[in-house]
Design a protein around this nucleic acid. Structure first.
Lengths: 220, 220, 220, 220
DNA sequence: CATGAATGAGGGTTCATTCAT
DNA sequence: GATGAATGAACCCTCATTCAT
């Protein structure tokens, strides 16, 4: 059964019952954590019967796995896509990757909260596999960009790719997690939306600056 | 009542029942998460009766709060201590703070895993308060170091302190979380211990490098 | 799902699982009191799983509330019904109410034991509300009967309705509660059933006598 | 160990720890019921350690038994005392008993609340024994008064003593239990204290009236 | 294909009592 | 004689999942 949403720019978005459950679960997992979220809460939020979770996904655990598969499917592709791009140098590609990543985390911030906790207490082997694949995809992509950029003399330094990745992803997540608190600290009086926009612009610049230094890139 | 452990270098370590529970809980919370850990598991691991958790701490939730208080009490002090130090310039102090922080995360890696998840799904207001105090302590300390260093012409740039902090802490945590996976990726064949030592040395150098660039610090 | 009981005089009595629990609980609450009765005892007596109590009623407390609602729904109606009766004078109506009340207490003696204790330690506001409604229903009914009877010169006295009510209900309950002991005291050798029949006849006569005197009613 | 209270009219009241616990328990049992009252609550209210309850009384159950023994010891005596009185006729004695009883219930209303519930769910055989002794004492006393009064032509009727007793005690208790609610019903605006005084005066008159009728007593 | 009534296991917590001091 | 730390049992309730329909 499908729920038909209002057409957006001539596109009719169809959300299946499965997706409905998936999104409701994602939100709740982000807010309370996986274990603190009950199947009843999910089913209530998704407006379906409790038994549908087991019916569609097999179990609550498998629902989480499906969520990761669902979100990661869209995710891992863009790195390859950008790396393969013509008529851009490695610096431009790198910055494009970082920006796309930040966009994505901003857009799917609930999923990424779930992902972070799952990364820390890595209990589920299926999810570990998915995360590993994603991480290795990123590291592999960065590696290619860094090496090619060095060969092509776009970059003059060769930092450890794992650490560079840790810095990018770590900075992004901690900037996100700390957003609310940093705003309090700064005493900024502008609207939350305005503060966020400025904050993320600064974040992008900040990471750009770090990468420039790490890679020895000179803007012409 | 106290359990006497084997003397280590002429020091007899005394662990009270409370601490016993606290440490057992810390380990389990790190491995499985707070909600997935049952009081019965904790009591079994701590070799005490289940009811002792309520008896000593009031509830499972308050046990977690006590853990935070316990660990944070030791933690927050070192920033102030270092900032206040004489005969060190701001760069030396900054690096000392970072190294101490990495030491600490290495030493209490289980607690920091708990802390990270708690930071993401910030449900408990008491813990939020503790985390906030800690974070603001760090940011305040960094702020002072960065400003004074700039005044004293040790540093030539003035980066946003929140973002600098996000980078330091984010890099450290993601380097830690990714350790196992990075090792697999690098195909390094040396012992786990040896790899770790090298990895953390690299991490320290990496962060040092980033800070040098961010602050415009020139080693003499 | 329904359990079909043996047909009684061509009437098939159907008891739902909810009612099964309700009746089992009523019996146990009467015997041991609410707090001394565990949900496990109730579920065992009702031949259902423990979780069914929460499933059907929400909680043990709400089970008690439901019991009151269930029993009171049938109860409160008969007063109005009798007061509204045509071709009976107020004295006849009054005696009919008292007799119906005694019948009811006899029939639902277990519930009324629960009710008495709940009336004393009135902790549950929902139950208080139900009890109050019932009590006021009775007092209101008595008030109407007494006033009309006085107007119509059936009665020649106007006693305080609250105290008259306290006497009726108090006498009934204490006669019930003391039944066993009074039998011992009287040394009556007849069968329990025979003693009870005689005892309740006496009780009815006793209350009738008191009311006659209190109201100044003269039998023609 | 004794706590010395302020002297009242040159009398120093000494409350032992045991009595302290007894009175604290009595209050709590009246408010919440025996089973809903925890030993910890009692010990907190009595300002003693939890273990003192078991230490002094053996168990919580035995604490209740002791409470009954304590309160009943003072109670049962007055009936005999009054019956034995010279220079009063049986009617005067009867009314004296009733008034003393109401005084007592008023004074020890908390204990009588406990007693009522214990009377309904008569689980404890020791307490049953105490209650039975008390009840039989009353019935025996009433019996003597009624018989002698009839012989002496003070009374002209011979009602069943058990039912007369049920009416007296039942009316008193239900008047007490319903006090608060009756006040609401009557819409009486006078102070609670004033209402109570009037209410209990009415109650005494009411019972006197009933007894007069039941016994065929003619005031001269 | 989808449902919801029903389940058993396990959750955290509180209980009255004990026992070493 | 008096204490309080400590206990095991039991408390009510919620959990994810199943299965008859």
């Amino acid at each position: 059964m499908f729920v038909t949403f209002a057409p957006v720019k001539n596109v009719i978005i169809m959300i299946s019952k499965e997706e409905n459950i998936l999104f409701a679960a994602e939100k709740l997992f982000a807010e309370k954590g996986f274990d603190a979220t009950s199947t009843r809460e999910i089913s209530t939020a998704a407006n379906v019967n409790v038994s549908m979770i087991s019916y569609y996904f097999g179990s609550k655990e498998q629902l989480l796995e499906n969520l990761f598969e669902y979100r990661m499917k869209e995710s891992t592709s863009f790195m390859k896509e950008i790396v393969a791009k013509q008529n851009l140098n490695e610096w431009e590609k790198l910055i494009m990757v970082v920006n796309r990543y930040i966009d994505r985390v901003e857009q799917l911030k609930e999923f990424y909260r779930v992902m972070q906790t799952e990364q820390i207490t890595n209990k589920n082997p299926r999810i570990n596999e998915i995360l590993k694949r994603s991480k290795l995809g990123f590291i592999g992509g960065y590696n290619e960009l860094l090496n090619k950029g060095f060969e092509n003399k776009v970059f003059t330094k060769k930092p450890k790719v794992e650490l560079a990745h840790a810095t990018i992803i770590g900075t992004v997540f901690y900037a996100f997690n700390g957003l609310k608190m940093y705003r309090e600290y700064s005493g900024n009086k502008s609207s939350e939306e305005a503060y966020k926009t400025e904050y993320f612009n600064d974040l992008r610049q900040h990471i750009k600056q770090i990468l420039k230094d790490l890679l020895g890139y000179e803007e012409k």
